[in-house]
Every structure is written in C-alpha cells, then in structure tokens.
Amino acid sequence: MSYLDAQFDDNIIIAKVDDLFNWARLSSLWQVGFGLACCAIEMMATSASHYDFDRFGVIPRPSPRQSDIIIISGTVTLKMALRVKRLYEQMPDPKYVISMGSCSNCGGPYWEHGYHVLKGVDRVVPVDVYVPGCPPRPEALLEGLMKLQEKVRNESVVKKSA
C-alpha cells in the first residue's frame, strides 16, 4: 500500500478545483523534445539521471500536441524562428515557454553582428520564464522550472493569468 493510500483510506478529500488542477499541471509539465544549440546539451544533461528532470514530471514528448512546455534551448535563427512559432502554435493550451540561455533571451553574443539571429525568442512567442546563462547550468534550468511551477501553482481557472 502506498503512502497516499495509507493517508486517506476510505475517505473523501475536499480540495479547490484550482488547487487540484494546478497541482496536476505543475507536477507533469511535459516538454517538447526539441533543442536548438549548445543549451540543448545542458538541457539533455538536466534530463539525464544526475539532475533527473523526471522528478519534476518533465518528460520529453515527441509531439508538440502532447506537450505543456517548450524550452527554447539555444540560438533562434531567423530561419528557425518561423518553425519555433509553428511548434508553439501546435501545442494545446495551457502552454508555457521557458527561454533558456542568453541567445534565446536577447540574441546573446549575436546581438550586434548576427545577421541571421532573432534577437530574443519573445519576439515570436510569449515567454514565461527567462533562464540566464551561456549556457545555463542544469541547476539554473531546474530553478527556472521551479519558477514556472510557482507560476502555475498560483493560476486560476476563473481568473485569467497574465
């Protein structure tokens, strides 16, 4: 018998719909299996056993239609920006975006002479959490995810969040 079963046997739990939904959502933020540049290597390291993204319920999905979050992990070129936007639009609501690393936050080292780089992914999709770093350490990405969970925890099905 599991811990939860032992806690509540033969009982009814009363909770707010908001709390239940938010708890379910923030505990299973499935991500689009999608990486762009060197940040993607750190993202993969975060998914691997040492940092274990899965303990937060983050599982890479092969399709945007099964995903809740998209981590923009790397340099967004102008050519890729159109594809990123399409991936985002294919995701079902509610959906969240984590912008990972300097390139996707603001263009990073390509801000001045990067003729092929979009200077920040927030020019094409709305970003919930910006994770700074070049590339960010897995700890930083984990903290970014926890910030996003905090945001989801305070959402409401009645009141629309920003």
């Binding site: 102008l78 263009g107 003729y115 200077k119 020019r123």
Partner: peptide
C-alpha cells in the same frame, strides 16, 4: 523586418 519579426537588436 523579416516575416514581421524585427531583425535589428
């Protein structure tokens, strides 16, 4: 602009 996206910083 490129496809409605602003290109300069």
């Amino acid at each position: 602009f490129y496809h409605g996206m602003k290109v300069p910083y």
